[in-house]
Design a protein around this nucleic acid. Structure first.
Lengths: 341, 341
DNA sequence: TTGTACGCGTTATCAT
DNA sequence: ATGATAACGCGTACAA
């Protein structure tokens, strides 16, 4: 491996001079600078970031932990995070916890041993608390995304889940729907709880009754087996005329189920969801959604993280950003307001 | 920061003994091992991977560079790569080149300075050659994914692009289609060239003429602006009854275009593509595809990379794996064999 | 079974 | 403007 000493020797200067040329620090005469640069070119020298990290006590490495790499919300978020990281000269390490606490624990270990300078993460849920405490104990700055964890004060970027869900219910009500079911993620996840709350408020606002059995709670990740959800749906009487899902993945799963049962969207049943489908928004049935600003989640979160890292000791108060969700009306909802209830 | 020396002092042993406990090397009495472990717990000690990397001359870090993080083919591939890496005790750094040579060049720099132990990458195209040569020059082992780069001998995992495209054309022909258009990626990408070739062979096999104007060449990534493609389609006379796209992203873009023109799939025009849509396969219009084994691309590629890293000096011959693509018939193709030509 | 000395490649500090 | 020295945290080789 070509080291800074090899360059120094060949250029007839000290290692320190080479270091100064590399980092543009201190005063260097143009002549030596030119010579050193030429030798570096000749020898294909590349600085060793590992050695640099050791002495600088920083890796210039950040970590982004998401819960579902196949979900366009998170991949779009990842782009935002990546762009912001690059802008500030950081490199980014990705991880995918798959909504699993065990995998999340593994990644926390990786994060700790890798000595990354900071972490941006969507926690698997409330039980993630010990993981966050571990980061805090080891002085690893972090910013939470999308989900709050009770008991942990920290920087965070959230979507307005309650308001978004409420709007979706209102939209359905305006179109004449009175039997609205909810397929939601686990109640151990703050965003799922808020979406349930928004759903309830939306119902109340339209003087529709809340019925426990119209809510199906499952995981926000891909389900694979749909038998539980199928059984739930078949138990309902009357059948809902519309389904609201707590995120985009569940919307796709719901559509998969409906297809299996031979039901068309929106002719036979309407469907709306939280989160947009990214590139797939334009595919039939062209879903009506409460779209979150996925890219901004990543971009702003990363900005907050880098700000936090930049702080000396004096910790400024925790920041909490709430991004509104936008209702995008497409054509997965049928207007049944003129029909019989 | 808690170091190995802090542990040693508190446990009343030398740093070397602590190191042995951490790595399970050498002989240690159960008593000291227990005591050291206890102290490590108490002090929340976490080994510094940076220091370890420096002395060991390996980072236990691998890099996966893909060209489109929003494409389910690559995210599924990423899962396979991640699983294989973890199985072998490696951590994984992700990057997303967005089909851009410039971004790819940036990542190559990151790869070099980070001293990762190996790289798994889908090159942006033939012009990626200098990037690969740079990796080779610096002795960074790498395995190519999905795309060959003329002039570079190396390990590689490919899909059977030619055969897959041929099958798709045959399927269309069987359904009575005689006017089949191709929307393809850049001809500077080997897989696009092979898919074009398969398209031509499929036509010939069914005694259909190849017509230059029925091929539209663009980028494999998201297009954004569809005006070029729209203009192309409107120029065609006769209109194709079916479109074959070179990958899944282009299929979605094509459907976006068709929707804008008020054309239904498959009633007004049929569409098939290379690569599956992952979770979105079940969304209308339920695309017929030549599905690649995305997970296997990542899993096998990573295995090959780790094997290569494990080799001392003696380099075994380059390995080339070609994974077949499977035709999944769904319902985006209309059977027009009984209609007038 | 345990400990000592040294080196991995780089940068900060202090001299010159 | 440039250089010598020490230090970052850990593991290898060798010694005890």
């Amino acid at each position: 491996m070509v080291t800074i000493y090899d360059i120094a020797a060949k250029a007839g200067v000290s290692a320190m001079t080479v270091s100064r040329v590399i980092n543009n620090t201190g005063k260097i005469s143009e002549k030596t600078r030119a010579k050193v640069k030429r030798v570096m070119e000749e020898m294909n020298y590349v600085p060793n970031q590992t050695a640099r990290s050791l002495v600088l006590q920083q890796t210039k490495l950040l970590f982004l932990l998401i819960t579902d790499i196949t979900n366009p919300f998170y991949t779009t978020l990842a782009r935002g995070a990546e762009d912001a990281a690059k802008k500030h000269g950081y490199r980014l390490l990705f991880g995918n916890s798959d909504e699993s606490l065990e995998k999340e624990a593994d990644y926390v270990t990786t994060i700790l041993t890798t000595r990354v300078d900071g972490v941006l993460l969507a926690p698997a849920g409330d039980p993630s608390l010990p993981h966050l405490e571990s980061l805090r104990k080891h002085n690893v700055p972090f910013v939470l995304l999308d989900r709050e964890v009770p008991g942990m004060d920290c920087d965070i970027v959230l979507g307005d889940s309650k308001e978004g869900a409420k709007r979706l219910v209102e939209h359905l009500a305006e179109k004449g729907h009175r039997q609205i079911a909810l397929v939601n993620g686990s109640s151990s996840i703050s965003s799922a709880r808020l979406r349930l709350q928004g759903y309830k408020e939306g119902l109340k606002l339209n003087e529709l009754p809340f019925r426990e059995e119209f809510v199906f709670e499952t995981s926000f990740g891909q389900l694979g087996d749909l038998s539980d959800m199928t059984a739930w749906l078949e138990r309902l009487d009357p059948m809902p005329t519309a389904i609201l899902t707590g995120n985009n993945v569940l919307a796709v799963e719901a559509m998969r189920l409906l297809r299996a049962k031979g039901l068309r969207v929106p002719e036979d049943i309407s469907i709306v969801c939280f989160d947009d489908l990214g590139p797939y928004s334009d595919v039939d049935p062209f879903l009506t959604v409460a779209a979150q600003q996925a890219y901004q989640f990543g971009y702003m979160g990363m900005g907050m993280l880098i700000d936090r890292i930049g702080e000396r000791d004096g910790s400024s108060p925790w920041k909490k950003v709430v991004l509104p969700a936008e209702l995008l009306v497409r054509r997965s909802v049928k207007d049944i307001s003129s029909e019989e209830g």
